[in-house]
Design a protein around this nucleic acid. Structure first.
Lengths: 227, 227
DNA sequence: GGCGCGCGATGCGCATTCTGATCGTCGAAG
DNA sequence: CTTCGACGATCAGAATGCGCATCGCGCGCC
């Protein structure tokens, strides 16, 4: 299992390389976009981890070049929190997943493993679903009962979090730190409002309701079973 | 479940140690970075709680050293509010979560439990049971005899504590500090009231009664079998 | 430069929790 | 066996604080 990391920031790059090596992968590290592209085209990698901000050639330019060469290489994007636009671009270009910096290493590892699984079984669609609700990470599209739903960036991000951890009650502090980059100032209710808007789009026109409020605790997304 | 706390400030350290011990964990406390590192590498811990500001060796240096030794140890960072930079560094180094000081103890406890669930993948169970009573931590749901019971936040928290320490007689002072964030003012009877409400939901409609009062001592939850 | 849409802040209603008073019960001692 | 003291149980009203709907600003797009 060979992984190529393209990351210019030395500290992060070394850290990633070390961690993934310890996890049992063979890892190469390129420090800029041109090196990265060269390695990606010549080396025989099973996965590329790609920083968006790179000197020389940025992440999605690199990805574009790789795709033009007809490579099916799975790509995992790393983006800073304020580069959502880039992230979207990357996904449209055929990145298979992305991770917002800063991230927990365990999270990265999990994504990497998922990508490998996918790679072997042929390309599975990168979608998250619950009941008749479906979220397509690549196309950034949401449907429910086959009806297309348009979401804003925040709404999408929130729904994505809820879907990734479906069945779990997510405390507001967690949501705040994941979807916004704030350390929960309790004197704001942005979260409630965001949930309200999300519900208006994905729950109000449909049955059953998937987003449940757990008073004093947070929110869960789940298919309400009997009992 | 063994936890290592590395914290130089005596007050905070003692407070954490006491609280986590009462919650049922085995806790060691190191007062500086070098001690902490030594313990982290030699002791067999399931989680490290790490202050960023430490004499000798700071939090992320310690973390880096641990990672270099190939340890998969889950790490929870404690950072002051104005040390967001440090926090980011910590996360890049593979911290699994962070908490901004000052924090509510309940918040810490919740994070610790989440880390156990995720890190060890089920070492810490996601559901607690006694007799036909079942409590699902992730979904925050309670059932008895397969009948769904809706609990409020406080009720849930209280029942969770009783279940985690089932068979033990829990003094009121302990309950007060774990479920409420207070140091027992004896001139209130909130606990009795809360126990009453909880009993009304989980014991009154069922047999056998699981919550028992031990006069002069506190409360126990247990299945009243022979003995 | 105007317009529209997405975002975050303010004020209300209600579930939940606490307060305080009273009643019940357990245990010990006369 | 009876009585008394103390601790715990219970109840109803009060207060807290949470979650929701509405409102106005501001950014981005045309």
């Amino acid at each position: 299992m060979r992984i190529l990391i393209v990351e210019d920031e030395a500290k992060t790059g070394d850290y990633l390389k070390q961690g993934l090596t310890e996890a049992g992968y063979v890892v190469d590290l390129a420090r800029d976009g041109m090196d990265g592209l060269h390695l990606a085209l010549t080396g025989d990698y099973d996965l590329v981890i790609l920083d968006v901000m790179l000197p020389g050639l940025n992440g999605w330019q690199l990805l574009e070049a790789v795709r033009r060469n007809g490579r099916e290489l799975p790509v995992l994007f790393l983006t800073a929190r304020d580069q959502v636009e880039d992230r979207v671009k990357g996904l449209e270009l055929g990145a298979d997943d992305y991770l917002v910096k800063p991230f927990a290493f365990a999270e990265l590892l999990a994504r990497v493993r998922t990508l490998f699984r996918r790679g072997r079984n042929g390309t599975e669609p990168t979608t998250l679903t619950v009941a008749d609700l479906e979220l397509d990470l690549l196309r950034r599209r949401v449907t429910r009962s086959s009806r297309r739903i348009d979401l804003t960036a925040k709404e999408f991000s929130l729904l994505e979090l809820l879907l990734r951890r479906q069945g779990e009650v997510l405390p507001r502090s967690l949501i705040a730190s994941q979807v916004w980059d704030m350390n929960f100032d309790s004197d704001t209710n942005v979260i409630e409002v965001a949930v309200r808007r999300l519900r208006a789009k994905v729950d109000d026109p449909f049955e059953p309701k998937l987003i449940r409020t757990v008073r004093g605790m947070g929110y869960v997304l789940e298919a309400p079973d009997a009992a």
